[in-house]
Design a protein around this nucleic acid. Structure first.
Length: 934
DNA sequence: TGCGTAAGCCTTTTT
DNA sequence: GGCTTACGCA
């Protein structure tokens, strides 16, 4: 790729702070990657000195891959490249906390849904029901459980993410925040916001607490001072105030900061992101150099012109002045840009489908000087302001015509018939419906089930109803009952495929898998409640809460790139591009969206306490930026359309739509083509860009062991039933990690420290007290035994918890941590994995894993280890020690490549027969029959 | 054009 | 329950 002068300037600026203002399609990923290469050329800069943040994990995978290939091309093999951090700020911060701040060692991270369940379950001690809502002209009233937990959660987020003046907050709100944070702490939880807040405060203590900074904080700050030399922040326009504090904290010791962003693409201000961060960057970081990348290489001149028109109507004092120019190879042909008005949503949907079908096979050139290929379904996307509200007509039309599509965006999962049926099981257990309702619901889902099958299932549910005091609760987990029920009624993919076909079967399983995820979210928080309570409150939660939380989307697993039209919200389209983009339903009050009434977070947190609170409310300018993002996704074809909605609010054309019709490139009617042959249609062919895959070691282990188990777990979302002992293995692991980390520094743990060590790390949240004691003693014994047997070797510990990444095959990376690298008495180097229970993976799979580690360590250090070991911490199980197998090393690359291909092809078949893996698999009941005689 | 009233709706979502 | 928008009336 040839670089422009400005791109080169950005790449070559390696000293001092740098702000890159990069318009849509300006090749910023490439610029970031090449700049990183240049940083690595600097004397004294190692990969571990560079930290690069992206907004999403997906963007991280892409950037990482790009950096790796540029480094390989330009610098060859670079030692320690896996230590270059590319990921989200949350990921980095969590790492930092869990390796330096002991109070967070045991913590697990709650998803948004889980933290809301936590708030509702602890409605009082979370502060929810003691906090007031203050509406204008009304006396303040307390917040309500379930009803307002979402709002409360937003208030909790806002106060930790933004600059809030404590003195301006009512006492109950301050108490609420403290209560919620105490609740998290007491249960060893972190939520997403807390991760960043804690890190930011430890790095840059707010002045009032500066004096109390304790030892671990010094450690963390020292670590940052010693390692961080360069910080790169992508999508800087969407950072919020805490994130900015954390960035400042990371660079306070003299590291160089490079921010990359585009103020015109700020689309998360309703979540607190502050455009002001990028607008005032140059004045806040002294000596910062600013480079504008205003050449758009993605889109045709017409698309660029329209996009400019959209965004140049924003008040200039609210933007960085810049003028995007079209510099790519896409040509404009008349009819590429359309603004079409239809009479009804149905006609609009039909019009879009007509146009897609008509455009199939039109020649399209991906790269300058490249060969044309024919447009295919995956070259189209339809971007809605709100998928949930507006996409129904289009989905119906596409389904009717057989146009393949994938939907992204929150949808109503709980309205699908199979999930309604699953839900009815818990209504039955809660005794709000009778068994005939359950049977009717399942038959209604049309999954080819027979009534007699369902009668067998009802017996399982009766069993759950019959719980009596004294029965161990863990025989009655919601998850366990759910999966036993599914197994008992014969709900298995092989049965379903035979009766209703593979497509419907896959969708049903996907939805039932999501339901399993929902159960897991709920049950992890409610593990302490007795089974009857758990089941009835779960039924209520499903009824009133869960419906809004989960996404419905079948064909998209994030790995495979299906041959289908993408239907998505504008927000989700950020960072993507398509040859042809449709933006339908451009109605007044929808896009730009009208302001919304009702309760909002400022009824809890007074607006006066928040600086620049207005940005949360959303303005026409914000909507303009959103429209700009939507339009600039198009490479060549852009079709805007309007049809009146059913309610009077949405009957008129959008202001943006009307503006667009005034653009000279835009036609309000598609040109007729007198002679089809002039279009030179060619065979539709997908662009063939394979998405990059990053596996974790544990994912890969599941995939090696049984591809179908991987599919059930990671693609459909089936969750394992909770085990009382859960957390023991990880705790023991963490203890060993501390032992070895200290050993690396020459500090050998002695026997008297073992108890303290175990107490610091042991966290088994689902274990009742007697079991907790048992686990504690078991852990102490295991660690003592280990120390006795290995004390003489501890000084030869070389690494503990070493992050590695393996790139044995293009497009597929495997990332993980090596438990331990040590020298043996023979002087040989050994790579070690610990095991702590019998339920661990088969030896053969662990052997594969260890050989991947060997490859990873070789990539990182240039050294090939001699031996691999499986150290079993459980007394009764044996350990394994064997030489690195060169044949296996050769095969492993092929195995990884094959795994990647499987994922991309969605080829994860069931095993043909019952095997050892099935015997320990959590999901065997929804997969196959257990053989009657072994 | 200005004002008062009543109808209608209550996104977007990453970590 | 709250707030914005549309609309009717002067």
């Amino acid at each position: 790729m040839r670089l422009t002068t400005k791109q080169r300037a950005a790449i070559e600026t390696v000293n001092g702070h740098l702000g890159i203002v990069a318009c849509a399609g300006s090749g910023k990923t490439e610029v970031i990657a090449q700049r990183v290469v240049n940083l690595l050329r600097q004397p004294g800069v190692e990969p571990r000195n560079i930290v690069a943040f992206t907004f999403t994990e997906r963007a991280a995978a892409e950037l990482k891959q790009r950096i790796f290939s540029r480094v390989r091309e330009q610098l060859g093999d670079v030692r320690g490249l896996a230590e270059l951090f590319v990921g989200t700020m949350h990921g980095y911060a969590l790492n930092l906390l869990q390796s330096h701040v002991p109070e967070t060692f045991k913590c697990t991270v709650l998803s948004e849904v889980q933290s809301r369940v936590l708030i509702d379950r602890n409605s009082k001690s979370s502060g929810l029901t003691n906090t007031y809502i203050r509406s204008t002209g009304k006396p303040p009233r307390k917040m309500k459980r379930y009803r307002e937990s979402r709002l409360y959660q937003r208030a909790m987020d806002l106060m930790r993410e933004d600059h809030v003046d404590i003195d301006q907050l009512p006492a109950d709100v301050v108490d609420g925040l403290n209560a919620y944070r105490m609740l998290l702490r007491r249960h060893h939880y972190l939520d997403y916001t807390e991760i960043i807040r804690l890190t930011a405060d430890l790095l840059l203590p707010p002045s009032s607490t500066a004096a109390t900074a304790a030892a671990p904080v010094v450690n963390l700050r020292d670590h940052v001072r010693e390692t961080v030399q360069h910080v790169v922040v992508d999508e800087y326009q969407d950072t919020n105030p805490v994130q900015e504090q954390m960035i400042k904290g990371l660079t306070q010791f003299g590291a160089n900061l490079c921010v990359v962003g585009d103020d015109d693409q700020t689309i998360y201000q309703w979540r607190g992101s502050a455009v002001s961060n990028i607008l005032t960057f140059a004045s806040r970081y002294t000596g910062a150099k600013i480079v504008d990348l205003n050449e758009n290489f993605r889109s045709s001149p017409a698309v660029v012109d329209l996009a400019r028109q959209v965004v140049e109507r924003i008040d200039p004092s609210h933007r960085l002045t810049k003028s995007m120019t079209a510099s790519g190879h896409q040509r404009y042909d008349r009819g590429d840009l359309l603004a079409l008005a239809f009479k009804s949503p149905q006609e609009e949907a039909a019009g879009i489908c007509d146009r897609i079908e008509w455009m199939l096979g039109l020649p399209f050139i991906d790269r300058p000087g490249g060969e044309p290929r024919g447009l295919t379904y995956s070259d189209f996307s339809v971007l809605f302001r709100s998928v949930a509200k507006d996409a129904d007509a289009l989905v119906a039309e596409m389904r009717a015509r057989g146009i393949p599509y994938i939907i992204k965006g929150l949808h109503r999962l709980f309205e699908t018939p199979e999930v309604k049926a699953a839900k009815s099981c818990f209504d039955y257990i809660a005794d709000t419906v009778d068994s005939s309702a359950v049977i009717a619901a399942w038959l209604d889902a049309q999954l080819g089930l027979r009534e007699e099958d369902l009668r067998r299932g009802i017996k399982i549910l009766d069993d759950a109803r019959g719980w009596t005091q004294g029965t161990p609760w863990d025989t009655y987990t919601i998850q366990g009952i759910y999966q036993r029920f599914l197994g008992e009624i014969g709900l298995r993919e092989d049965h379903l495929e035979a009766s209703i076909g593979p497509q419907r079967s896959e969708l049903a399983f996907y939805n039932l898998g999501r339901f399993s995820t929902a159960i897991g979210d709920y049950e992890r928080i409610h593990f302490l409640s007795s089974p009857p309570d758990r089941f009835t409150t779960f039924a209520k939660w499903l009824e009133y809460q869960a419906g809004y939380y989960y996404e419905e989307s079948d064909a998209d697993d994030g790995y495979a790139q299906p041959e289908a039209v993408t239907i998505a919200t504008v927000h989700q389209a950020k960072g993507m591009q398509w040859p042809a983009v449709f933006i339908p339903c451009m109605r007044s009050n929808r896009f730009p969206s009208k302001k919304h009434g009702g309760l909002n977070v400022f009824h809890v947190v007074p607006q006066a306490a928040v600086s620049d609170a207005d940005r949360y409310r959303g303005s026409e300018e914000d909507e303009r930026r959103l429209f700009y993002v939507a339009a600039t996704r198009a490479q060549k074809y852009l079709t805007l359309s309007f049809s009146p909605g059913t309610s009077q609010l949405y009957r008129k054309e959008s202001k943006f739509f009307v503006e667009a019709t005034r653009n000279t490139y835009v036609m309000t009617k598609a040109p007729t083509v007198p002679d089809e042959s002039t279009l030179n249609r060619i065979e539709p062919t997908p662009a063939g860009s394979k998405p990059d895959i990053v596996f974790s070691f544990s994912e890969l282990k599941y995939l090696f062991e049984c591809p179908y188990q991987f599919k059930l777990r990671f693609l459909y979302g089936f969750d394992s039933p909770l085990q009382k002992e859960l957390g023991y293995g990880k705790s023991l692991h963490d203890v060993m990690a501390e032992v070895h980390k200290r050993a690396v520094k020459g500090d050998i743990v002695n026997d008297t420290e073992v108890e303290g060590l175990v107490d610091r790390h042991l966290h088994a949240p689902f274990a009742p007290d007697p079991l907790k004691q048992k686990l504690r003693l078991a852990a102490i014994r295991a660690v003592r035994r280990y120390l006795t047997e290995n004390r003489s070797r501890l000084p030869w510990t070389e690494h503990s918890e070493l992050p590695v990444e393996v790139h044995l095959t293009p497009g597929v990376a495997v990332a993980g941590r090596i438990d331990l690298i040590r020298r043996l008495d023979t002087g040989e180097q050994s790579i070690v994995d610990y095991k702590s229970d019998e339920r661990a993976h088969a030896e053969e799979v662990t052997r594969d894993q260890l050989h991947i580690y060997v490859a990873g360590y070789e990539e990182l250090s240039g050294n090939r280890a001699d031996v691999v070991e499986i150290l079993n911490l459980d007394e009764r199980s044996r350990s394994v020690r064997e030489p690195v197998d060169d044949v296996l090393m050769k095969d492993i690359a092929d195995k990884i490549a094959e795994a990647g291909d499987r994922i991309r092809r969605n080829d994860m078949p069931r095993k043909t027969t019952w095997c050892d893996t099935c015997a320990t698999c959590d999901f065997s009941s929804i997969c196959r029959d257990r053989p009657t005689s072994p």
